[in-house]
């Protein structure tokens, strides 16, 4: 079943007065229940693609469909709602709020979701932390956690509103081998549970976990397999 579909997607930007085609006329369909690995060198456009599909960046031309709905022309508040309810983001640098405990970080996406009251939020945050093996780190601040633990908190946060699409940008970039394996296994499991998992990485290990590998160069897919 179709999760995200991009149609003739283009994104350009200027770097030191030079026009860069970060995404150059890409069309592709990502399906539920699959794990996609997008690989490529720095500057190949993989991060820009994931930002555009996650509605974090604007596109210059082309269309993005989520669950069959054209979302590229939606207003900002509708995009916010889609990001909050349908998409879970994981970043290389975790971006945890250092002023909040682990469970409070996980609660963040739920704060703007009317579905949860405070008790439910707290309960769900603790369940999610248990899911990523951090039940004993619930009340710890990010500074008190290792890099791997912080990334697991970020995964729990990405899953807070039970999104069906997971977009991860270099999720294992700052992790050791053991934690890297743990995180990729978790993402694989999420795909097996029926979610669409799209991971941007230049780490070849990811190939072992992905259903599809897409290689990018100069804003285009040069390999699909």
């Amino acid at each position: 079943m179709e999760a995200i579909s991009v149609d003739k997607l283009c994104r350009d930007y200027y770097l030191k007065n030079e026009l860069i085609h970060a995404i150059n006329n890409i069309s592709y369909t990502f399906e539920y229940g699959k794990f996609y690995a997008i690989m490529g060198h720095s500057g190949s456009g993989k991060s820009t693609l994931i930002q555009c599909m996650g509605l974090l960046d604007k596109v210059d031309s082309g269309k993005i469909y989520i669950d069959g709905e054209n979302v590229s022309s939606l207003k900002e508040h509708s995009k916010n709602e889609i990001r909050n309810k349908k998409i879970g983001f994981i970043f290389q640098d975790y971006y945890l709020n250092n002023t909040m405990k682990a469970y409070e970080n996980v609660m963040l996406p739920m704060l703007i979701n009317d579905k949860y009251n405070k008790t439910d939020m707290k309960k769900r945050a603790k369940e999610l932390l248990k899911l990523v093996g951090l039940e004993d780190r619930v009340n710890h601040y990010p500074k008190e956690l290792s890099g791997g633990e912080q990334q697991r908190v970020a995964i729990a946060r990405a899953l807070a509103n039970s999104p069906s699409i997971i977009l991860a940008d270099e999720p294992t970039g700052n992790l050791d081998e053991f934690t890297e394996k743990y995180v990729l296994e978790k993402l694989r499991k999420l795909a097996d549970e029926g979610n669409c998992v799209i991971v941007v990485s230049h780490n070849p290990v990811i190939v072992e976990y992905a259903d599809y590998v897409l290689k990018m160069k100069s804003g285009r897919f040069i390999y699909e397999g």
Binding site: G54, L56, R83, N84, I87, F91, Y95, L108, I112
Partner: peptide
């Protein structure tokens, strides 16, 4: 933080 809050759906 704007990027991550935006990613979570915050306006």
């Amino acid at each position: 933080s704007n990027l991550i809050y935006k990613a979570m759906g915050y306006s």
